[in-house]
């Protein structure tokens, strides 16, 4: 039996997209660049010590004191390793991917929760996005957006979006049926039902999704460095490709510190909203 030429079709599809939608990709590219640029400017415009103080304060406000102390020491270490600028570059990429993933993902999750048909269609697509090895769409991303930060952000968005979609959907579906009925029985419009009852009650679950999305975005930092997204991933990649074991390790430590800070802060946001 002949092999079904799925790969060939995919290539044809990518070519077709390139031929017909290039202006769209250009638009997306400049949009993403603009957001990343904004975050980078904001994060790098103040001296590192001031930024460390600000982030530690946020950690203290949102989470416990322990988290704040860890944040302070962790960021000071990063600064000491001369990785501050690269860390902020990575953070800007993570923020950009997360913000875009949330802007698309949360409404998508809401839509899935409201329509069973959408739910059924979206599930396999989300599985695909999450489990398809990231390298596979890294290359088409480069074709669409050239090398650099934009294809990195694009791949990160695809990889990091599913959790927030799934958990928004789950959070809304978990609102007890009787509570939804109560809201409807008093004459809520579907918008009122969503804003006054479903979203507030789903918030802790949605925030868990946001947390997962941020973590996944961060885990893409190293991979997207392969297509020129720079940041901490570049350090790690240098370590791997140029046998600079020490340098690679330092970059890795910085990624871990960043991950733990982001995780603790967003988790604290989630638990405080349940109270």
């Amino acid at each position: 039996m002949n092999k079904i030429p799925i790969g060939d079709y995919f290539e044809m599809f990518i070519d077709w997209l390139m031929d017909n939608f290039e202006p769209v990709f250009e638009g997306i590219k400049s949009g993403i660049l603009w957001v990343i640029g904004g975050f980078e400017t904001a994060l790098l415009s103040v001296p590192s010590l001031v930024m460390i103080a600000i982030i530690s304060l946020i950690a203290w406000k949102v989470a416990k004191r322990r988290v704040a102390i860890f944040t302070l020491l962790g960021l000071l270490l990063i600064d000491n390793l001369n990785l501050w600028d690269k860390t902020m570059e990575s953070l800007a990429l993570v923020f950009t991917a997360t913000v875009i993933a949330l802007v698309i993902g949360i409404p998508m999750g809401i839509w899935m929760a409201r329509k069973d048909g959408v739910d059924r269609t979206m599930r396999p697509i989300l599985d695909f996005m999450q489990t398809m090895p990231a390298f596979v769409y890294l290359i088409p991303a480069v074709i669409f957006f050239d090398l650099g930060k934009v294809p990195g952000a694009f791949s990160t968005i695809i990889f990091a979006m599913p959790p927030v979609v799934r958990l928004t959907n789950l959070g809304i579906r978990q609102v007890p049926k009787e509570v939804v009925e109560a809201s409807k029985s008093f004459g809520s419009t579907s918008k009122q039902l969503l804003l006054k009852v479903q979203l507030p009650l789903a918030t802790p679950t949605i925030l868990a999704g946001v947390n997962q999305t941020i973590m996944l975005a961060l885990s893409m930092v190293v991979i997207s460095a392969m297509i020129g997204a720079r940041g901490l991933g570049e350090e790690v990649l240098k370590g791997v490709t140029q046998m600079q074991i020490g340098k690679g390790f330092e970059g890795g430590v910085a990624v871990v510190i960043l991950a733990m800070i982001l995780d603790r802060i967003t988790q604290a946001l989630g638990t405080s909203s349940t109270k």
Partner: peptide, 15 residues
């Protein structure tokens, strides 16, 4: 639903 009929639920269904 707003003006004429109001409902009370078995498991209270408070928000």
């Amino acid at each position: 639903r707003r003006k004429k009929v109001a409902m009370v639920f078995q498991h209270f269904a408070l928000f």
